[in-house]
């Protein structure tokens, strides 16, 4: 025979276990549906969109045009990090044709660097945030284009 106090502890324990298990489940679902909080830098706010690139991401003539229009100012027409602004910057722009470094970076890091600027991924502040200028889908395409330029994938 179990004493009433022990019975209470036993029942309470089972109750807590049930709540605990369902809580984890809830948390898991919540994680999937809750949008990420906006990234706040000192004075600009940008919404963190979907980080995973919608498949399939295809590099088109328009993607190359976008690269030439915006990125080439610093990264150069061929992506070699030798754009017309390059020699005036305190930190040289990334050479997009060098696989050695770029293969150590993930596509998500590229995406964040383009959308939120260099500082957001711990790199140079010379790289501005393009999140208010380019659509997420365009940024995903640019990430693919950089992979094309370096002929490399994330290790």
């Amino acid at each position: 025979m179990i004493k009433p106090s022990l019975k209470f502890i036993f029942n309470y324990g089972i109750l807590m276990l049930v709540i605990g298990v369902s809580g984890c489940g809830e948390k898991k679902t919540e994680k999937n549906i809750t949008p990420k909080p906006p990234l706040k830098t000192e004075s600009q706010t940008l919404e963190l969109g979907e980080e995973v690139a919608p498949e399939p991401v295809v590099v088109t003539a328009k993607t190359r045009e976008t690269y030439q229009w915006y990125c080439a100012q610093c990264h150069g027409i061929k992506g070699k990090g030798d754009g017309i602004n390059a020699k005036f910057l305190t930190v040289p722009p990334r050479n997009h044709t060098k696989a050695e470094y770029l293969e150590t970076r993930t596509d998500e890091q590229f995406f964040k660097a383009i959308k939120f600027g260099g500082l957001s991924v711990g790199r140079a502040p010379c790289m501005p945030a393009w999140g208010n200028t380019l659509k997420d889908s365009t940024i995903h395409e640019l990430v693919r284009y950089i992979r094309e330029l370096c002929q490399c994938e994330a290790l």
């Binding site: 602004n85 502040p125 010379c126 790289m127 501005p128």
Partner: peptide
């Protein structure tokens, strides 16, 4: 901010 937050100085 001109130099670091908004990177205006790059261009």
């Amino acid at each position: 901010e001109f130099e670091r937050t908004f990177s205006c100085i790059s261009c």
